[in-house]
Simulated assay, not measured.
Amino acid sequence: MMLRYLITGATGGFGGHILDYFINNVPLNEFAVSSSQRGKRQYFEGRGVQFRHLDYEDPSTLEVGLRDVQNLLFVSTNTNVIHIDRIHRHHQNVVLAAAKANVRHVWYTSLPFGGFGNDSKVAVQQQHIATEQMLQKSGLTYTCIREGIYTEAFPLFLNWYADTAEIILPCDGEIAFTSREDLAEGTARLMLGGGYENKTVLLTAGETITARGIVDTIIQSTGRELKIRYVSEGEFLAHHTEHDKGKKPVVLFEILASWWTAAARGELKVVDGLLREILCREPLTPHHTVKKLLQEKGDHTWHQNYA
């Protein structure tokens, strides 16, 4: 029997929000979720949700798990952005298996560096573009969804902790930070509505914010003193390698420096009205989301801020 929707990444925050939307709006017999962890079966089936085991590292699980799927939500692998080769292998495995299984429509979650263009110099975006190109050449019907940068991840971008007194960055730029919950709901609605065959779409909030703007919002929301200082890339790397509270490796700060350099070039300032159209309301602005997060929890953090 054909399965209308298969949701990958449902154990993560983004995929989890999508799953919640499906549970509340779609008959349970029309969709299933997948995980690389077989032990998650009991948890999902306990919620009345069908489960399939898919491990991006293991093509045999993909061959079985993607059978009779009409719409596949292909959430990009949760492999650390440091491991570009592994991301490429995982994504290639999924595309090849989806083509072999004759999946009718693949909905792929990409990143927004460069807006609608393909000339970003950011390594992880180049890998997403490579995956988009795999889909284009595969013969599959696809939609590439370039998801806005999660506003919730601002502590990682600023290397901010609740007791941080000074933000040190190599440069600044406008970023269309977007609420993860808005993106999840928008992605779910996009899939359920259908269309957008063989297209690349961009989901973002309607406004941008800079690092300095986030610092101002932190000050306004918490009453804490916080400064921001711009230094050379070498000073940025040296400072955070020595003083980072999260004990992250220098390669991650090299990646962050490349992201801020891209932001300074304008790669993350592109906004699009599609998310507003799909949600039938204005998405939360980055300022509003940062303020909301800090009002709910003054020491809001992001998991990748720690090694």
Rank of each mutant, 00 (worst) to 15 (best):
V106D: 00
A205E: 02
F177P: 01
E132G: 09
N102S: 07
D163I: 15
I167T: 09
L140Q: 04
Q136L: 01
A205W: 00
I168S: 06
C144Q: 07
F157P: 04
F116A: 11
Q125S: 08
W160P: 12
T143F: 05
Y108F: 13
G114H: 01
D163C: 15
H128C: 00
N198D: 10
I175A: 11
T143L: 04
A188T: 10
R212T: 12
L140W: 02
T131N: 03
I167C: 10
P112C: 11
I168G: 04
H105K: 10
G186F: 01
T178Q: 05
E174M: 15
F177M: 09
H128S: 00
T143V: 07
E197W: 14
V201Q: 03
G206C: 11
T143W: 02
A101K: 01
V122E: 00
L158M: 12
I129D: 10
Y161G: 13
E147F: 04
S179M: 09
G186T: 06
T141I: 11
T164I: 13
G114T: 03
S179I: 03
F157V: 11
P170L: 10
V201R: 04
D163L: 14
A211E: 12
R189W: 06
Q127A: 09
E174C: 14
V124M: 06
A130Q: 08
I145L: 01
D163W: 15
N198T: 07
F154V: 11
A184Y: 00
E185R: 04
E207F: 03
M134E: 08
R189L: 09
L192M: 15
A211Q: 11
E197V: 15
L183H: 02
N118M: 09
G193R: 15
Y161A: 13
A130W: 05
A162M: 14
I209M: 12
E166P: 13
G186A: 09
A123Q: 07
V124I: 10
G193P: 15
F154N: 11
I149G: 03
N102T: 06
L158Y: 05
L158W: 05
Q125P: 05
Y196P: 00
L183S: 05
L156P: 11
R180Y: 03
I149C: 08
E181W: 01
L203S: 02
I209G: 06
L169A: 14
L169E: 12
A188R: 06
G206H: 10
Y161I: 12
W107F: 14
D163T: 15
M191P: 01
A205C: 11
N198P: 07
Q125L: 05
G117E: 12
L140G: 03
